[in-house]
Design a binder for these strands. Sequence first.
DNA 1: CTACGACTTCAAGTCAACTTGAGGTCAAGC
DNA 2: GCTTGACCTCAAGTTGACTTGAAGTCGTAG
Lengths: 142, 142
Amino acid sequence: MKYLDIGEVSAKSGIKPSALRHYEAVGLIAAVSRHGLRRQFLPEVLLQLKLVSMGKSAGFSLDEIAGMFGRNGLPDLPRAALHQKADEIDRQIRELTALRNTLRHVADCPAPSHMECPTFRRLVDVAGKRSGKHANSKRRLP
Amino acid sequence: MKYLDIGEVSAKSGIKPSALRHYEAVGLIAAVSRHGLRRQFLPEVLLQLKLVSMGKSAGFSLDEIAGMFGRNGLPDLPRAALHQKADEIDRQIRELTALRNTLRHVADCPAPSHMECPTFRRLVDVAGKRSGKHANSKRRLP
DNA sequence: CTACGACTTCAAGTCAACTTGAGGTCAAGC
DNA sequence: GCTTGACCTCAAGTTGACTTGAAGTCGTAG
């Protein structure tokens, strides 16, 4: 009785049905059954989708998210792997913080050339304390 | 004399020449001149590239980054727009923090089903304080 | 009992951000 | 003066994450 069909999940999550089907195809979510042809989802799926979108905005691929939160929305990685993911996110938070500070600085700094402003260079350098081979990102407006 | 050619920029920035040419094509960076056919870059470009990679890891598209830091690597947006970008980043930092906390929690919480753990639900809800229509991300390993 | 609308599948298309490959240019060292 | 290697251009290919379109399937309201 409390099953949701794809349209309801879409309405409540703000994610298009086509995207939800795609998520099912790659194993991020699963329908509990079918009503005729229609997928029936448990309300739980909304929570799982929240995790998915958190992961996405963190810059993880769908595959990586599936790795963090198994097919059921429950993490199936060993503790250490999860902490390592958390560390990655910490690093990303530090980078974002540096970028935000940089933006606020350039918004307010009256110097003619930021490239020569020591504050600016220091801000940028903060992010330089080892990023390495990392996250590439992109937007898509539904 | 202190011009860098693309191979040097690539070596010092860790960004492939093909990507640098792509960045030039979309107006993110610019060569000051050519030596024969070869692009000559100012050392400044390395700082600009740092800004670009910060922006990328923040989930901005190359177009958006070009919007924040004009063709010269210097921001050309009005103060208010920059602060608005900074606010967007703040929101993203909050989401990332929630995700990291969630990961650390699930790594350590002994509850059998996280979906029923109140701490878990609270952590997830923290991120729910309105994201709206937002950042989609992806990885690409060079 | 039929029409409707919300769903279904599947193949193909799109978009960003690059990468790859073929074929060409050129300055510097021998 | 010729070879070499690092660069060049331009078109086409790749990947991830979807979206779109055509053609079909249902169950419920009238």
